[in-house]
Design a protein around this nucleic acid. Structure first.
Lengths: 231, 231
DNA sequence: CGCGGCTTTGATGTTCATCAAGTAAAGTGG
DNA sequence: CCACTTTACTTGATGAACATCAAAGCCGCG
């Protein structure tokens, strides 16, 4: 189960990133008082759509998915967030309840920062407000761009795209261990589970990928990029 | 062609909406100096993806579409914005060039407000910053929600959804004149032009809609809603 | 008046989801 | 630690949903 840990002081936290870099010592001290740090195991639910928003969710370590519940147990994954992504920011200024659910794909450490404190910061610290706008803009734009890209491709292009996404954006390596199931892959790139498996097998047969369960290695990145671009 | 007009003073402009409501007199005066007001005719291009962003685009009157250029002349429309929507806000804090193109669907009046002035406001006026965050959040969330909704429906559901969208969200009437061509409709809800026409004809035959070129009247709104919901 | 763009309809073919059936792996409880 | 259950993975066959293409009519505009 989730577990509260002996937390890092915001002042010395190396993960504070863009978000808190514009805070002075006094503000960091306040931040520290207004946050809690929680460790989640893999596959735990951080928040559910519909729940009340009280805190900003900040991923310090690990990997999470942001998704919407669908009918008959088939969800739709909007995006996958890695550390320093400000994913829990979405719509917190607008609504009082979450529009999306979040769960962990790996063991993760999450900071929860009280919403009201964030709002005070926005009012009192102009640089923080600008940073927040920038950050939020980027998160949203990435989601829109990815959704757009995936929608305009056919199945082989989608698989190529998402493999490149994990390789380049998340793991920065040609070899990685897929953090999600084939079924979740299908929910991320909007296709049937059967076809995810089928096309991964094709790529394996064509010597584009080495695939062994969750272990994936890109063998022919040029061809993979071409397939991704051409759709 | 586009045309600069004798502009309204920001201080007395009734269209300043949420965005500028938190400004004091001095700030409104400055706003006035940092904006220009332009009238566009129908089907003019306001900005193109790739162009440098210098100003925030604020729609005062009319209707515009936000889209991405696709291959072989087939674009993808992200959203349609009506007055007071802060559509030109997207990604201006992040990038120096537009990621999307904007063109008018009706004769429109647009205010262009210098980016640097907006950034100064964010830094100096906390309430303005909060409003901006809220506004931006809403714009983005709406785009994500609409895209999501449309993707999860089949063709008949998409047509029903978009007709209801125009009827309820844009024109607030069961009778309206479609501001876009059949082809643009297809770009907005991601299907072929042929099928847009085919399904509109079916709805006409089934007495759900009265369709006469661009003139549309909803005859059976209950059924239309059901088709939209069930996908 | 003729050209180009928008609209319409039908015929054809492709892409893809769905389903079934079977195997492997991973939890679960005694 | 083993039997049991569940969950994930895999492959193939089938058909539905949808795009594409062609041909023809319409309208506005130079």
């Amino acid at each position: 189960m989730e577990q509260l840990i002996n937390p890092t002081d915001c002042k010395t936290c190396h993960k504070k990133s863009l978000l808190f870099e514009s805070l002075n010592d006094k503000e960091l001290e306040l931040a520290n008082k207004n946050k809690k740090e929680i460790i989640y195991k893999k596959k735990e639910v951080v928040c559910k759509e519909g729940e009340e928003i009280k805190e900003l969710i900040y991923l310090k370590k690990g990997l999470i998915k942001l998704y919407k519940k669908g009918i008959n147990n088939k969800d739709q994954i909007l995006t996958i967030a890695k550390p320093l992504d400000l994913i829990g920011l979405l719509s917190i200024f607008l609504d009082t309840t979450y529009k999306y659910s979040i769960s962990t794909l790996e063991d993760s450490t999450i900071c929860l920062i009280k919403i009201n404190f964030i709002k005070e910061l926005v009012k009192n610290n102009g640089f923080f407000a600008l940073n927040l706008l920038k950050n939020m803009s980027k998160t949203y734009d990435d989601i829109i761009k990815t959704t757009f890209d995936i929608n305009t491709k056919q199945l082989r292009g989608r698989i190529a795209y998402i493999i490149l996404y994990f390789s380049q954006y998340i793991y920065k390596s040609n070899y990685f261990i897929l953090p999600i199931t084939r079924r979740e892959l299908s929910e991320l790139i909007d296709m049937s589970t059967g076809n995810v498996i089928r096309i991964l097998s094709e790529f394996k047969k064509d010597k584009i990928l080495r695939v062994n369960e969750k272990k994936i290695e890109i063998l022919n990145i040029e061809l993979l990029k071409k397939i991704s671009e051409l759709g």
